[in-house]
Amino acid sequence: MLFSPSDVRSSLSWFLSGMRGILSLPALILMTSFVGFSAFALESGIGRGEAVFMTLVVWALPAKMILIGTMAGGAPLAASFLAVTLSSIRMMPMVASIMPDMKNDKSPTWLLLFLSHFVAITSWVFAIQHLNDVPRDKRIAYFGGFAITLTLINAVIVGVCYGIVAQFPPIVAGALFMLTPIYFFASIWASARHDVVKLAFVVGVVMGPAMAMIEPEFDILYAGLGGGTLAYLFDRYVLRPRRRAKASPSVMEDMP
């Protein structure tokens, strides 16, 4: 036996408390987005089974919208692959940035690879907000409980709602569409524990739309990689030296 009975029970109970996270505001907002997605899939000529399958194997909402967009436009397979993969490069730093908080010395790599499939913006924010409050050896169970359940529930939502909600009244559809970005603005700002993250937040907000007008094909890459690097360098070489300069006089005063 790898685990003693008490360890098994507490991992399971952390998994269950992670599951309870699907009743939180972010999870509920994401579910309304998936109701909208099922209507979008129907309108784009994607079948019910295909829409559910896509939810399970792709998961990230922006990637699915792009995949459907290229499929509906009759693009060749290679073009679909390129468009989706370019839009998903952000997955790499997203997953990498939560790994140091998630793993422990004994975490098997195959388990981390499996769990990484369930990372999308909502579960990434959840990890940033909650992992630090969980004992390190229970974090994988906790995150898995939330993220896997969230994916499965949304797959069910797509399967059930497909065809039921073909068309919302325009105002409801508009409000539903805005829920997700508004939620991300507030929750990512509120969960930022480092100044460099707040700086990168502002740079991304400004550079995303700006780059979309200047260089629409690689806008997200420029805004993310370029803007994120700018934010990092500014924090490291301008903000941090200033903070140290401000902090040092008080250190002097403390001296006898």
Partner: peptide
């Protein structure tokens, strides 16, 4: 580590660029 600080900055800027674009260039009725 410094590398993690940079990865955090890039991940946040990427996510916010995607999010901000949804507000500036929405699809559908909006």
């Amino acid at each position: 580590s410094e590398a993690l600080q940079w990865v955090r900055a890039v991940a946040t800027a990427l996510v916010m660029a995607v999010t901000s674009k949804l507000v500036f260039f929405p699809t559908g009725t909006l």
